[in-house]
Simulated assay, not measured.
Amino acid sequence: MVAAFLENAVGAIAQRAEERERLQRMIIRDVSVANAAARAVSYVRGAAERDSLTSYVQQRKTAVAPHSRTDSVAPLADVMRIVGGRRRSFLSHRIGNATWKVNFAKSAAKKLRDASPSIIFSMPGSSLETFAANRESHKVFHAIDAHPRTRNDRLYSVFGENARGETYPQRFVERIERELALADTVLVPEAP
């Protein structure tokens, strides 16, 4: 399992695979650098900030119940994700979101280079290199959003140019489309 995001569905799937002794390896984003930076900043900013950031760091630590073969990769990816999310500009989502996912994907692909997993489970924007390098594996793409072109079109139709900060750049849309083309199975969200 290659998980750029440690969301509930990923945790549930990993837990179920672990219970059935099917989870060979879990590759997650290394959060140690970002956590250390949060702790350091909290001491400079004071007690209230420290309590808030300490709570944040603790939540992140408990969000993952590491498998014995969990590998953390791309420590700068999480820093890019957090810094990009805190800088409120149209560039933060459009460039930062793509940058950290690509950084993570390249690191995950290197980690799996010689592993030959039977199934690879991965997410949008962070699957391309792993899927391409493991063509014999069954590749599961966990589509957490609508198709990126549809997502962009819908955001623009509702919010006009104000949507720009939440849309994916064309290059990233094409990347996700290449990931979808390589996937053997695509999991999609269901509308209620």
Rank of each mutant, 00 (worst) to 15 (best):
F131Q: 08
R16N: 08
Q170N: 08
A47P: 04
M1N: 04
D30P: 02
I144N: 04
G85I: 01
I82S: 01
E179W: 04
G125N: 07
E190D: 01
R94Q: 11
R22F: 14
T62C: 04
N103G: 00
A63L: 09
A132R: 08
Y43V: 02
A47D: 07
V44D: 10
I82G: 00
I82L: 13
R88Q: 10
I95W: 15
T150G: 03
A17S: 14
A183P: 01
A163F: 05
R25G: 09
A98R: 08
Q170L: 12
A108S: 10
L6G: 04
A3E: 11
A143K: 01
R149H: 14
S107R: 10
V33E: 13
A65D: 14
Y168C: 02
A14Q: 11
V79L: 05
T130I: 14
V79H: 01
E136M: 11
S126F: 01
S92P: 02
N134T: 05
Y156D: 05
S116V: 02
D114P: 03
A77E: 07
T130A: 15
L182G: 04
N162L: 12
A183R: 03
I95E: 09
F104K: 00
R151S: 05
Y43I: 05
E49A: 15
V2Q: 06
Y43L: 11
G165D: 09
V2Y: 08
S126D: 06
H138T: 15
D184C: 11
A146R: 13
R94I: 01
F90E: 06
A105E: 12
R45L: 15
A77M: 03
A37F: 02
P169A: 11
A36N: 07
I120G: 09
L23Q: 02
R16K: 15
A143R: 08
S55G: 01
S92Q: 07
K110H: 10
F159M: 10
P117G: 13
G160Q: 03
R50V: 01
T130S: 15
V41T: 05
R113C: 02
S107C: 11
Q24R: 12
Q58R: 13
I28V: 15
K106Y: 09
H142A: 11
D114F: 13
V83I: 13
E7L: 09
S55Q: 07
V186N: 10
V140S: 03
A181R: 11
N152H: 09
A132V: 00
R86A: 08
R29T: 14
R87E: 06
G160C: 04
R29S: 14
S118L: 06
L53W: 10
R171H: 09
A63T: 01
A12L: 13
R87G: 00
A36T: 09
R87S: 02
A132G: 00
T99W: 08
R113K: 15
R113P: 00
E49K: 06
K106F: 06
D30I: 03
I176S: 05
D78M: 07
N162Q: 14
S118M: 03
H67R: 03
R25I: 14
L91T: 04
I144Y: 11
D78K: 00
T130R: 08
V73L: 05
H67L: 10
V83R: 04
G85L: 03
A48R: 12
A163C: 01
A143G: 05
G46D: 06
S116T: 12
P189R: 13
R25D: 10
E7M: 02
R22Y: 11
D30R: 00
